[in-house]
Design a protein around this nucleic acid. Sequence first.
DNA 1: TCCCCTGGGACTGTATTCAGTATTCAGTGG
DNA 2: CCACTGAATACTGAATACAGTCCCAGGGGA
Lengths: 225, 225
Amino acid sequence: MTFQSIKPLRKRLAEEAYDQILGGVLRGDVGPEDRLVQEKLAAELEISRTPVREALLRLEGEGILETAPTGGFRLRTLSRDEVQDLYEARAAVEGQAIRLAAVRGGAEAGARLAAVVREAEGRPGRDVHAYFEANRDIHRAIVEESGNRWLLTQFDTLWNRGVSFRLFAAIETVDLSRCLGDHLTLAEAVAAGDGPAAQEAMQAHVADGLNLQVEAMRDQWGGAD
Amino acid sequence: MTFQSIKPLRKRLAEEAYDQILGGVLRGDVGPEDRLVQEKLAAELEISRTPVREALLRLEGEGILETAPTGGFRLRTLSRDEVQDLYEARAAVEGQAIRLAAVRGGAEAGARLAAVVREAEGRPGRDVHAYFEANRDIHRAIVEESGNRWLLTQFDTLWNRGVSFRLFAAIETVDLSRCLGDHLTLAEAVAAGDGPAAQEAMQAHVADGLNLQVEAMRDQWGGAD
DNA sequence: TCCCCTGGGACTGTATTCAGTATTCAGTGG
DNA sequence: CCACTGAATACTGAATACAGTCCCAGGGGA
């Protein structure tokens, strides 16, 4: 007598709601001017307000949403200063991560990362979206090699904040491939096992990313903000 | 004709519950074996389960609580590896923070920090608790000097995680003053304006803290865990 | 005596209801 | 036509009600 399990189909509704909403934000379905209202969302997801509310509050805590003055939540937009803060935080997390990866993982970790870089950068799609996908995979792989869970969750949170702010839409206009070669250099630094050097390289790499970003934002928004 | 604002008298109940619970954890009123049950807490705080639940979930998200297998929440205890992860994350955040403080704040920031260090370390109480209070104030001041909000919130979260795990109770048995002199050195590094050097100094300082910690844990727990 | 298995208690997760507050808008007096 | 008022509206936060899960103890049968 054998039956299939039908249970774990469903995790907590609140979590599912979180995934849905975050997914919408990351996909860009939720624009900066959209208002997310508990009742509306609940109706759309066909659940009650309670789990929706929980999901929204969590997103707010992660800095992705903020409460709109008129009620409801909306995307949290970032000032130029905050974008810089974000990149600096990334530099902190990823710099430490690569340092640990280098010290602990050494040559093997370097080889693994080099493989990831080659795979990601060799993918067929050459549009902006594909590029950012690849970029994310590479950076995340580095943080994974650190073996430190908290750094990884911090990385994910920071990355989501960036994506949700459509940071990457802004970057569309500038030369993306400019920093592509860096990634292999990073992998080599890990392979060499020199922690501080790898950390410096990563700090520089992220700083480059920031410059690219600022440049793109200037192009897009003009001098304002 | 002037009137005073009477607005913000009362923040959200959930937030108040959060403060209460976190406070209890930090003060040590909540032991590692206590179970936090929504209904009980709600009764004690004389509010309904809804805001209590919100507070507990937030604490869980911050890694301070975890759901107990038998129901309810309890303190999240850390394995030795996780303690190390925590310190490494601190090194990431505080290392980057001091680097920024040095680059941006330079001499003035260094002077401000030196003043904080002297004040904190010159306080009357010489017991363990006072020491940790002072230590926290110093480290937090450094992160504040970075001017980066996200680094600061990350610092607070990481610090609370450490405190709630009674990390510091463990350290009671070892020589605390060993790393006291470091703090002035850190302030000097900021004053010198050499970012990378300051960062390295902080990384080393935090690593020292980890060693102290591990030592204390070994004394206290023996080889286990 | 030991093992099922069954019923109840303890909790949580979700839905629903209630209450309060801010915002908008229509109406009215100047 | 403008300024103000008061009511309707649109939301949220909190309380309460409901449903389901998990564990455990206690009883009946082998």
